[in-house]
Structure formats: structure tokens, C-alpha cells
Measured scan of single mutants.
Amino acid sequence: MDETGKELVLALYDYQEKSPREVTMKKGDILTLLNSTNKDWWKVEVKITVNGKTYERQGAVPAAYVKKL
């Protein structure tokens, strides 16, 4: 869990989004888990830093590609 009490997951593999509802992640990324009720796809929040600014993006990733921490 992070400092706000939200559950975290670890990306076990790289994943490139294939639709606007998904998010890209790299192996080793730590993501915030938002919903894991679907056994195949979990909704997560990814933090992306671009030019020193951090953005948050929500989307789905394959459940088999992440592990709860």
C-alpha cells in the first residue's frame, strides 16, 4: 500500500497499450491498483513524468502482467 492506503501492484512485464482504455507500463513499474474485480484486466493508475511534470493516467492492464505488493 502507498501512503494514502491504496493498494500497489508491480509490473512483471512490459505492456504497450492497444486502445485508449489501456495504459502502457514497463517491467518494474509500481502502479496504483484502482479495481481488480475483473479477473483478466485490472484498472490501474500510472504516474508519467514528462519534462519534469508528473501526470496521472488511469487505464486497464492485463492482470497476469502485474502482481499485488
Rank of each mutant, 00 (worst) to 15 (best):
M1A: 13
E3N: 14
E3D: 13
E3W: 12
T4V: 13
T4M: 13
T4Y: 12
G5F: 12
G5V: 12
G5Y: 12
K6A: 10
K6D: 08
E7L: 10
E7T: 13
E7K: 08
L10Y: 10
L10D: 01
L10W: 06
L10A: 04
A11M: 03
A11C: 12
A11T: 02
A11D: 01
L12M: 09
Y13P: 01
Y13G: 04
D14Q: 03
D14M: 05
D14R: 03
Y15K: 00
Y15M: 01
Y15C: 06
Q16K: 11
Q16L: 11
E17R: 14
E17S: 15
K18S: 09
K18P: 03
K18Q: 13
S19A: 07
P20A: 10
P20R: 08
R21W: 15
E22H: 07
E22D: 04
V23Q: 01
V23N: 02
V23W: 05
T24S: 15
T24R: 06
T24I: 05
T24N: 04
M25V: 10
M25L: 08
K26W: 07
K26I: 06
K27Q: 09
G28C: 08
G28D: 03
G28S: 03
D29K: 02
D29P: 02
I30G: 00
I30C: 08
I30Y: 04
L31A: 06
L31I: 06
L31P: 00
L31V: 05
L31T: 01
L31F: 07
L31H: 02
L31E: 01
L31G: 03
T32N: 06
T32I: 14
T32S: 07
L33G: 00
L33W: 02
L33K: 00
L34V: 11
L34Q: 01
L34K: 05
N35C: 13
N35T: 06
N35P: 01
S36G: 10
S36W: 08
T37L: 09
N38P: 04
N38Y: 07
K39W: 06
K39T: 10
K39I: 09
K39C: 12
D40I: 14
D40G: 08
W41F: 06
W42F: 05
W42K: 00
W42R: 00
K43W: 15
V44F: 02
E45A: 15
E45S: 15
V46N: 03
K47I: 12
K47N: 08
K47Q: 11
I48T: 09
I48F: 11
T49E: 11
T49R: 08
T49G: 04
V50C: 12
V50G: 05
V50E: 11
N51P: 03
N51M: 09
N51H: 09
N51V: 04
N51F: 09
G52E: 06
K53T: 11
K53D: 08
T54Y: 07
T54F: 08
T54S: 10
T54P: 07
T54M: 09
E56N: 15
E56A: 15
E56M: 15
E56C: 15
E56R: 15
R57V: 08
R57A: 06
Q58H: 08
Q58W: 07
Q58L: 06
G59S: 02
G59D: 00
G59I: 08
A60E: 15
V61S: 01
V61N: 02
V61H: 01
V61T: 01
P62R: 05
P62G: 02
P62F: 07
A63I: 03
A63D: 03
A63G: 03
A64P: 06
A64D: 10
V66T: 01
K67Q: 12
K67R: 14
K68A: 07
K68F: 08
K68P: 08
L69N: 00
L69T: 04
